[in-house]
Write a protein that binds this DNA or RNA. Structure first.
Length: 269
DNA sequence: GTGTCATGCGTAT
DNA sequence: TACGCCTGACACG
């Protein structure tokens, strides 16, 4: 279930478990057979993430680029002996002395050159999970140039990297912004608020492996991880249900082929 | 079993 | 704006 937090979390967990290991790599599905043969028997040196992209660094200066798309999944097994048979769709599998990793359904799983990686990184905007100096200014500048709806711009990976359909709806709610408002009409303090929300909430998501935007205190819980399915989000997929803050019915519409939800009272136009 | 839907994105029209 | 692509979970009959 991949927004940026999923990718950064996968990178962290894979790094911790597998970095430094020599791995046996194959492609049960067959669609990454050549790549797997190239990697097989090499040491995995590192794993890093940017936005929704993940990079495996292999011995011999080989980089594998992975993008999960909508369906991609990483599965890590701590005991390779007990790992199940890979499904027919397992694109890449690796096995080492500290476990196994299966990848299925990715949009991209490919060995890329340094030039290709550079080109890719050029297209990726500020990542709330890998903040660099000047990021907020870049985000402000991008938004100020766009007349398209704020919620649509927040999905543009060149503007902010890692936000997906769940977070964008939730950030607009928490910032009190109608998702249909033209991006350039959103005032600067609100843009800053959205940026700060993305940093703090995606960090929570990265840590617990789940998107939680509801303030635990608002529902009598101690921490985000304690919130149950169905009470973790304010607006996403809650059309017709009542707003957790004001009880107005949640609205929804489609923007550029993606559905978005909002509270007409808490997010006035 | 079949149909539908999904936290994404590139390309064609 | 629409479509194709990637896979799996779930609702329905």
């Amino acid at each position: 279930m991949p927004e940026g937090h999923t990718i950064h979390r996968a990178a962290r967990l894979q790094r911790r478990r597998f970095a430094g290991e020599v791995l046996e790599v194959d492609s049960p599905q067959g669609r990454f057979s050549d790549g797997a043969a190239e990697l097989n028997g090499r040491r995995l040196e590192g794993v890093d993430a940017l936005g929704k992209h993940l990079f495996h660094r292999w011995e011999g200066d080989l980089t594998v680029h992975i993008h999960l798309g909508l369906f991609g999944k990483f599965k890590v097994f701590t005991d390779a002996e007990k790992a199940p048979e890979p499904s027919d769709g397992t694109r890449m599998r690796w096995v080492g002395s500290s476990g196994a990793m299966y990848l299925s359904g990715p949009t991209a799983c490919e060995i890329i050159s340094a030039e290709q990686e550079e080109e890719l990184r050029q297209r990726i905007g500020p990542d709330p999970l890998a903040v660099r100096k000047g990021d907020l200014e870049r985000v402000k500048a991008s938004l100020a140039r766009r007349s398209t709806p704020i919620a649509q711009v927040l999905l543009d990976q060149a503007v902010v990297a890692g936000i997906g359909n769940v977070y964008r709806a939730e950030f607009c709610f928490l910032a009190g912004v109608d998702p249909r408002m033209p991006a350039r009409e959103v005032d600067e303090p609100t843009v800053e608020h959205i940026w700060n929300l993305s940093i703090s909430l995606m960090k929570v998501g990265e840590r617990i492996g789940r998107i939680v935007t509801v303030d635990p205190a608002e529902v009598g819980a101690k921490k985000p991880g304690d919130l149950r399915r169905g009470s973790r989000l304010y607006v996403y997929k809650r059309a017709g249900q009542s707003c957790r803050r004001c009880t107005a019915p949640i609205m929804s519409t489609e923007l550029a082929n993606r559905r978005v939800w909002w509270c007409p009272t808490c997010q006035p136009s």
